[in-house]
Write a protein that binds this DNA or RNA. Structure first.
Length: 922
RNA sequence: GGGCACAUAGCUCAGUUGGUUAGAGCGCUACGCUCACAUCGUAGAGGUCGCCCGUUCAAUUCGGGCUGUGCCCACCA
């Protein structure tokens, strides 16, 4: 029996992972004899490298998957990656920049090739890293959101929604990232507060010309105000004033009623502004007068639609000002802001400025401040899609863990806004929309949608443009990445080919081999809906909510039953770990240093369900130490087995003594608790239970007890416990548990599964323990702890004691029977049994004890006795008071009263014993 | 502006239907290299359960208010 004295994680992990793959343990296929358990991985971006958030997320999934696999489910963990449109394009653009090139230098085709080349080279890096972590994904099924079949699913989804009227094109204010030069959805424009200014700008007001004299009645009371010559508006973005086409006031605002008979002039542009009145204008904010910039502000946009105002777009796609900005054209938006302020300052048109917190949208990929901008884009009408998705959660067909996310989800869903899905980038799924060349133009041209004649079609349309007779071409836009990932739970199983109804079939359907289709059909039927989704709260709206909508829309069913939302990984100060902040702990480094198991175990122990995880390097020591403990406990057992030549075969239940019975009972309890915790997704509680059992029951007591009387029966029990503990531990620490499992297999004569990966989850062993005997044994353990305690109080250090025991003959026999290990664990050189104790140090209902030593300094001991007496008296007092309370006796339940009475007698005895000890020693 | 959480030992957190002598891990202190493990063992100290009010025989637990912290949503010019 050879277990190396040092555990070498790196070597073992690589070897074992290879074996798992060779054996195909992670592969799942429909099997109607088993219940499926399916998890689809949140597909990491192909630009990603494994960070601690991934490590946490994927360890949770692997724990569940490995547990369910052992528990007899047909278990599938579907892996894959996300093409991550903007993120990937940015990375490749940066790459290109190193060569001094821009994507436009290459053109779409060449740049696209470059993107694919990048993806082929780096796109699966993170999957390899997941393997290092021990992830038991079914790698044969690895998917990518731009696989051919997957792309077909995306196209199909678009077309079906379009045909249902749930996708539309329109010109609205969207969030525009001037750096990525694309539209973003509201969710992708992350709101962040920045320090800015609120500028109060004077807009000149002149009397109306003689052609349009003011209505006399209207202007009379305030006619004189016209001499004040201006109206003040407040704005945080002065540069947008160049696009102002109106000024808005609240109709109830008497302060500004005089403006109705006036002509309001936009400074710099010297343009006359329309005056509009609308209830939406807040009387209390700023001056109550609002500049209206229809093409650059969502509120103003709505106002303009309502009041039929003109739209003037003043910006290019890179947020420089365009020709509509006159002298400022060509300037960057912030540069223009300063320039405009300077001009206004010169003309004395700035009344004041106040520091102001602006909640500005930031591009979630490059963190540039987004520009609200009028643009022709494609949208999903989400409200109809949201209805069944709301209902499913309300009816608990889908549950959130922790439950509080349910409210967050419902709150968002009930206020859902339409989803802008078109992006002006090159990496992604092209929209199946076709247009004649004569119609395609810059978005900034702001042609009316009605004028544009486009065709939504799976393939290039045959017909030619009626105006210019040229062919239709696919529009350049691509879809939001999330428009593909929201299909993940079923598109990964081959939808729509698999589940296609004849009328919705794509044209490629016919060319598919029938058996391929039916295979996919089987998979989809069997594995969908999936079981559990494990994710971080950050993508609740981006992904989880949308998957639920897509599930109902395309599959008529929930995509998953349970959603586990884990916390964010933070550093020890509570700051979110991020590469840019430089406070990351690299999981790969931890794996390198300690191994994957310690990383996984530490994470699972630290991450209490749903709360954020605070990490520091030293947090990983727990896992390292524990794995070391397991390794050494095993090594020791094997050494003993080797020394004694014991043959290990099956445990003999009839031969169990009180020690075995006790430890097996503890194992049973741990199995029950751990299983229940895992079923409730209380993963860290499960981790704690097993940790506690292995270390503090099995190692600290059982192994210590059997050490010097290593009989075959004890050895068998020990190996039985070890095996079951390893199985309980396997989901958390798959490598070391497998390694040890394999050495048990080779060294013991037991019939075991081929691998712990496919071993069955532990069941409780039937031992029907005698409760009284168990209690007796537990009392013995408690006494040993008390002896150690007293020894410490007496300041005896390592000194061995001679223990005098006064007890019944029966109990004395029990002690004699267990004397060897009691002596060792209580650090006694000898035990004497006596009918009379000269000086009692310890007294329980079973026995009294003394240490037969001269010159004992009992002062510390007496002090701790005093303390205990005082504590007991306090509780006793409270208990007595409670039992003397009439109200308590009438109101409290019988059980509670009985419990209190029991407590009273127990405490009284305890108090009496302690006082006797104290008095005798004093 | 709206919503959701959280506040328990120095730190990170348990405490699941109100009744426990309020727990664990890490850290800290003392003692110990007992032939698996010092990545170890034994023991200990440390908490008026954020504050106030209420419901109740009884509140860390339920309700209200306050304070503090975090997060999310919003058309805060």
């Amino acid at each position: 029996m050879d277990i190396p004295s040092k555990y070498n994680p790196q070597e073992v992990e690589t070897k074992i992972y290879g074996q798992w793959l060779d054996k195909g343990y992670f592969h799942a296929a429909p099997n109607h004899a088993k219940t499926p358990f399916t998890i689809v991985i949140p597909p990491p971006n192909i630009t990603g490298i494994l960070h601690m958030g991934h490590a946490l997320n994927n360890t949770i999934q692997d724990v569940l998957i490995r547990y369910k696999r052992m528990a007899g489910f047909e278990t599938l963990w579907m892996p894959g990656t996300d093409h991550a449109g903007i993120a990937t394009q940015n990375v490749v653009e940066k790459d290109l920049a190193k060569e001094g090139l821009k994507k436009d230098d290459l053109g779409r085709q060449a740049f696209s090739e470059r993107l694919w080349a990048w993806r082929d080279k780096y796109g699966s890096t993170i999957l390899q890293q997941l393997k290092n972590l021990g992830a038991s994904c079914d790698w044969e099924r690895t998917r990518f959101t731009m696989d051919e079949a997957y792309s077909e699913a995306v196209k199909e989804a678009f077309i079906r929604l379009y045909e249902k009227g749930l996708i539309y094109r329109g010109e609205y204010i969207i969030n525009w990232c001037p750096r990525c030069k694309t539209a973003l959805s509201d969710e992708e424009a992350a709101r962040k507060e920045i320090n800015g200014w609120l500028y109060y700008i004077k807009y000149p007001v002149r009397p109306k010309t003689k052609d349009h004299p003011p209505q006399s009645g209207e202007a009379s009371p305030k006619a004189g105000r016209l001499k004040t010559e201006y109206i003040v508006v407040a704005t945080t973005r002065p540069e947008t004033m160049l696009g102002d086409t109106a000024l808005a006031i609240n109709p109830k605002d008497e302060r500004h009623a005089w403006l109705k008979s006036a002509k309001i002039i936009l400074p710099i542009m010297e343009r006359e502004l329309t005056l509009v009145e609308d209830e939406i204008i807040d009387l209390a904010f700023g001056t109550g007068a609002v500049k209206v910039t229809p093409a650059h502000d969502p509120v103003d946009f709505n106002l303009a639609k309502k009041h039929n105002l003109a739209f003037i777009n003043i910006m290019n796609d890179d947020a420089t000002l365009n020709q509509n900005a006159g002298e400022f054209s060509g300037m960057d938006r912030f540069e223009a802001r300063e320039a405009i302020l300077a001009v206004l300052e010169e003309e004395k048109l700035i009344e004041k400025k106040e520091p102001y917190k602006i909640s500005a949208g930031h591009c979630y990929r490059c963190h540039t401040i987004v520009e609200p901008r009028l643009s022709l884009q494609w949208f999903v009408n989400t409200k109809p899609l949201a209805q069944p998705a709301i209902k499913a959660v309300e009816e608990e067909k889908i549950k959130f863990y922790p439950e509080r996310w349910r409210k967050v989800y419902l709150n968002w869903m009930n206020n859902i806004q339409d989803w802008c899905i078109s992006r002006q980038i090159w990496w992604g799924h092209r929209l199946p929309v076709w247009q004649c060349k004569c119609q395609t133009g810059e978005n900034s041209k702001l042609v009316h949608p009605e004028d544009l004649n486009y065709i939504v079609s799976r393939d290039k349309p045959d017909k030619k443009c009626v105006r210019c007779n040229s062919e239709y071409e696919q529009i350049p836009d691509v879809l939001d990445t999330w428009f593909s990932s929201w299909l993940w739970p079923f598109a990964t199983f081959g939808w729509p080919r698999a589940s296609c109804k004849p009328q919705a079939a794509s044209h490629k359907q016919e060319s598919l081999k029938p058996e391929a289709c039916s295979l996919q059909q089987k998979d989809l039927d069997y594995f969908y809906p999936t079981s559990t989704l494990v994710t971080a709260s950050e993508i609740l709206f981006f992904w989880v909510a949308r998957m639920i909508m897509a599930g109902f829309e395309f599959m008529k069913e929930i995509p998953f039953k349970d959603v586990i939302i884990h916390g964010t990984v933070r550093d020890e100060r509570g700051i979110k770990m991020s590469k840019s902040l430089g406070n990351i702990i690299d999981p790969l480094e931890i794996i390198e240093k300690f191994g994957a198991d310690p990383l996984r175990f530490s994470l699972m122990l630290t991450a209490s369900s749903g709360s954020d995880v605070y990490l520091s390097d030293e947090k990983f020591l727990v896992g390292r130490n524990f794995c070391n403990k397991i390794w050494n406990a095993t090594r020791f057992l094997f050494l003993k087995i080797n020394d004694t030549g014991v043959r290990i075969d099956n445990i003999n239940i009839d031969a169990l003594d009180e020690i075995d019975t006790w430890v097996l009972d503890e194992l049973n309890n741990s199995i029950c608790k751990a299983t229940a915790h895992l079923d409730n997704y209380r993963i860290n509680d499960a981790t704690k239970v097993i940790y506690e059992f292995f270390w503090h029951t099995f190692c600290d007591w059982y192994i210590e007890i059997i050490k010097e009387n290593f009989t075959p029966d004890k050895a068998k029990t020990a190996i039985y416990i070890l095996l079951n503990a390893l199985k309980l531990l396997h989901p958390f620490i798959p490598f070391i548990s497998e390694e040890i499992f394999q050495s048990i297999k080779t060294n013991c004569e037991l019939t075991l599964e081929e691998s712990i990966t496919v071993a069955s989850w532990p069941k409780t062993i039937k031992i029907s323990p005698d409760v009284k005997k168990l209690e007796e044994f537990k009392a013995l353990i408690q006494t040993i702890k008390d002896i150690r305690n007293i020894k410490t109080d007496l300041g005896l250090g390592a000194k061995k004691i001679i223990l005098a025991v006064k007890t019944s003959d029966k109990n004395a026999a029990y002690w004699r029977q267990n004397e060897n290990w009691i002596k060792r664990l209580a650090q006694a050189q000898r035990i004497e049994y006596t009918g009379l104790l000269s000086r009692t140090l310890y007294k329980s209902e079973h026995w009294g004890l003394n240490f037969l030593l001269e010159d004992i300094d009992t002062s510390t001991f007496l002090k701790s006795l005093e303390k205990k007496i005082k504590e007991t008296e306090n509780i006793l007092k409270r208990t007595k008071e409670r039992l003397a309370n009439e109200n308590f006796l009438t109101c409290a339940s019988v059980e509670v009263i009985a419990q209190e009475k029991e407590k009273l007698t127990q405490l009284s005895t305890q108090e009496k014993r302690l006082k006797e000890l104290y008095d005798a020693l004093k």
